[in-house]
Design a protein around this nucleic acid. Structure first.
Lengths: 326, 326
DNA sequence: GTGAAAGCGCTAACAC
DNA sequence: GTGTTAGCGCTTTCAC
């Protein structure tokens, strides 16, 4: 392996000169040219560890995600990666398998590996999360969940719910079923629901039944199989597209036709909602933008610039075949 | 930040003793206890860079993938991550956006970052790939594509095609359309097709039309929209599930019913093939196992053990609603 | 503009 | 079993 010392010797200069040359310090035109050539010849590239050992920081950004196989995470991840690459940062991904404890663990372990900053897709922000974020002392930006006193980038969840609720009542529906996820998940379990409920409340005589189902497709499918046969509602809100997909499959299995038997909508805007038959009405979230803003703000933070504590991303209602006039 | 030196001073021993204690060298019971306590108190954790600087290697494994948003890559990635975590390795993911040049680039840049080994999901193995792999001098395992002289783990692509071909002829079909991807992709573009063709050839009077379509859902969908109206075949093989999905959507758009109008099958076993209506006949690949074997073999390689140059993973035909007797 | 020297935190001989 | 010592490859004063 060729080191800065080798370069220095070959160029007959001190290694400090080479270092300066490498880092844009003042070097004479002549030595610069000589060094240019030697570096090219030898294919020298600095040892990152030695650099980091001195600088006490790296060009790595850690990203903590709950699942590797979720559409939203992947969309965001792809744009994070793209954005990071442009800035010569490396992406370190840690998958927590939806284990909250692992999120905490990952914050510390990423910090230990001296990542410059952390992007955290969390589901629930506990006191332990806050403690970890405070302790590690490197910039952390929360993605998808808000927490006061911490940087976070979120979707307009409440507004998404409100839009969808308005849309459903405008279609003339009065009886609703809302398949929610556990409420500890503020963004998905509470805000979306509250938005929907607010819209429904503006309509007199509407009734909503709430049922909690699983995030998992398989489990939600099983639960839907039990719920649908005795369904009174004419419109089903699902807290995620994944759940809507499960309901659709269950309906298909039970011989119920959507939207004839009932209208159905999700949240998220996953690509697959437009592929299935009928295509599913949903709210399309700005995942790519989330990734971009996340990186941009993190870099600003690293550069000591200021960024707003909260960024809200807008979304868009996509009316599809799964919903119809009542 | 607390260093090995701080620990040593507080314990009144030399830092080498602390180092030995940390790395399982021989230390007296007494100092061990003292050190235990001090480390716990201070929350000391060794600086990875200093360690890596000496050891000239890390506990990081680089994984190069063409897309962050593909089902197969994510399945494999999830199990790679899991497997790596158990062994205290860190996953460094590099997304190439399906750019071959970036694959080469990534091999070098990962090597530069001193990853211990590389897992490479490639689409096409060029001479440049081979050159890069040889040059970096760290273990590289190819995933999903084979290349002589290099470690690789692949699916039984040919057999998958053969199974599906047999299945289709047994259903009584004689006229086939095969929607293939570009042939430079040996695993997907050649082996699968060859397997299917071999099976069809065993049936007299069968005819196959070959058409090349895109990997991308949107493009394949557009292409299918043009192809389907003049379709003569009664059975369409698609080189990937993604393409099958696109064909299904196009059929739906055109008012053609599957499998009444034609039978349809894909390759891959993506979860979504079982969600859509009709569910799609496909061959389920062992992505999770791919990840597991990949990590296991890579670790063996790191430990200087021998592993077979080629590992083939079996797969399973999943007959679904999209195919029927002719 | 350039070089000498110190040191980042750690590991690994080697001597005791 | 423990301490001394010499680096790993780099950056950064500080003289010159």
């Amino acid at each position: 392996m060729v080191t800065i010392n080798d370069i220095a010797k070959r160029a007959n200069v001190a290694k400090s000169t080479v270092s300066r040359y490498l880092n844009g310090g003042s070097v004479s035109q002549k030595t610069k040219e000589k060094l240019n050539q030697i570096v090219a010849e030898t294919g020298y590239t600095p040892n990152t560890f030695a650099q980091s050992l001195k600088a006490k920081k790296t060009n790595m950004i850690g990203t903590i995600i709950p699942r590797l196989d979720s559409y939203s995470a992947n969309e965001a991840l792809a744009s994070i990666d793209e954005e990071l690459r442009e800035r010569n940062f490396q992406l370190l991904i840690t998958n927590t398998n939806q284990l909250s404890a692992r999120e905490i663990e990952s914050i510390y372990s990423l910090a230990k590996q001296k990542v410059a900053g952390i992007l955290l897709f969390a589901t629930v922000i506990t006191e332990e999360h806050k403690k970890a974020i405070t302790e590690v002392g490197i910039p952390v930006i929360l993605l998808g969940q808000q927490a006061e006193g911490f940087y976070h980038i979120v979707h307009e969840e409440y507004q998404a719910g409100y839009k969808l609720g308005k849309y459903a009542t405008r279609l003339g529906h009065k009886d609703f079923l809302y398949l929610n996820v556990f409420e500890a998940d503020v963004a998905v379990g509470q805000l979306r629901k509250n938005g929907v409920l607010a819209a429904l409340k503006e309509e007199k005589e509407s009734s909503v039944e709430m049922v909690e189902v699983s995030f998992s497709f398989e489990k939600a499918y099983e639960q839907a199989l039990k719920l649908l046969p005795t369904l009174k509602a004419t419109y089903i809100f699902c807290a995620t597209d994944n759940i809507a997909l499960a309901v659709l499959k269950a309906a298909h299995k039970l011989g119920l036709e959507v939207p004839t038997a009932f209208s159905l909508s999700g949240f998220g805007g996953y690509q697959i909602t437009s592929i299935v038959t009928p295509s599913i009405t949903t709210v399309k979230y700005a995942y790519k933008e989330l990734g971009q803003v996340a990186v941009q703000n993190l870099i600003k933070l690293l550069d000591g610039e200021e960024v707003p504590e909260e960024v809200q991303l807008t979304n868009e209602l996509i009316a599809n075949e799964s919903t119809q006039q009542y």
